[in-house]
């Protein structure tokens, strides 16, 4: 019944073919099968957001999607977006503002923030807080994270103007 299935997808631009159990969720696939440990597991019930990754360009909970559902998909993780330089300014802002402490939520937080920033414009602090409301951070109290995202929004807006 629960026989393994073959899947082929691209992860951070690399073609990947693996045989997986249907029950394997995306974040465990990335972490355990592919060794991409930058995506984290915090609750496995879709609440904390530590497992946030991008599938076909939009962010999803890595614990609430099965690896078999990613057959043919384009998956991006923190490792990929770091190497491409796509969020270098956001990472720099998080660093300058110390918008992370233990760093466990950070990959998911960065990908979530990037989705908001990619829409363009200047989100208010309230809009930033709303957008990251599904990403749990126990360390910072969120203030510094909101500061960092706000700073990047201003920076990107300024550079376009």
């Amino acid at each position: 019944m629960s026989r393994q299935l073959d899947i082929a997808l691209t992860v951070n631009g690399e073609r990947v073919s693996e045989r997986v159990e249907p029950r394997l969720n995306l974040v465990d696939f990335l972490r355990d099968t592919l060794g991409l440990t930058g995506s984290h597991v915090g609750c496995e019930h879709g609440v904390c957001g530590a497992c946030t990754v991008r599938v076909n360009g939009t962010i999803v909970r890595g614990c609430l999607m099965l690896a078999v559902q990613c057959d043919g998909a384009r998956v991006e993780t923190i490792e990929g977006v770091s190497d491409s330089g796509a969020i270098a300014d956001l990472q720099e802002a998080f660093t300058r503002r110390n918008a992370l402490q233990c760093g466990y939520c950070t990959p998911g937080m960065l990908l979530t923030a990037q989705e908001l920033l990619a829409r363009g414009g200047l989100p208010t602090r309230e809009e930033i807080r709303e957008h990251i409301s599904g990403n749990y951070c126990r360390c910072t109290g969120y203030h510094a994270i909101v500061d960092a995202i706000e700073a990047v929004a201003q920076q990107r807006n300024g550079s376009k103007a």
Binding site: R31, L36, T37, T77, E79, Q91, T95, G103, T106, L110
Partner: peptide, 21 residues
């Protein structure tokens, strides 16, 4: 002085090593 932490690079780039990793 507000010196940034030396470990932030690996934490922001998914290159940290937590025990779960």
């Amino acid at each position: 002085r507000a010196v940034p932490r030396p470990n932030l690079g690996r934490l922001t780039q998914g290159r940290a090593q937590f025990v779960s990793d």
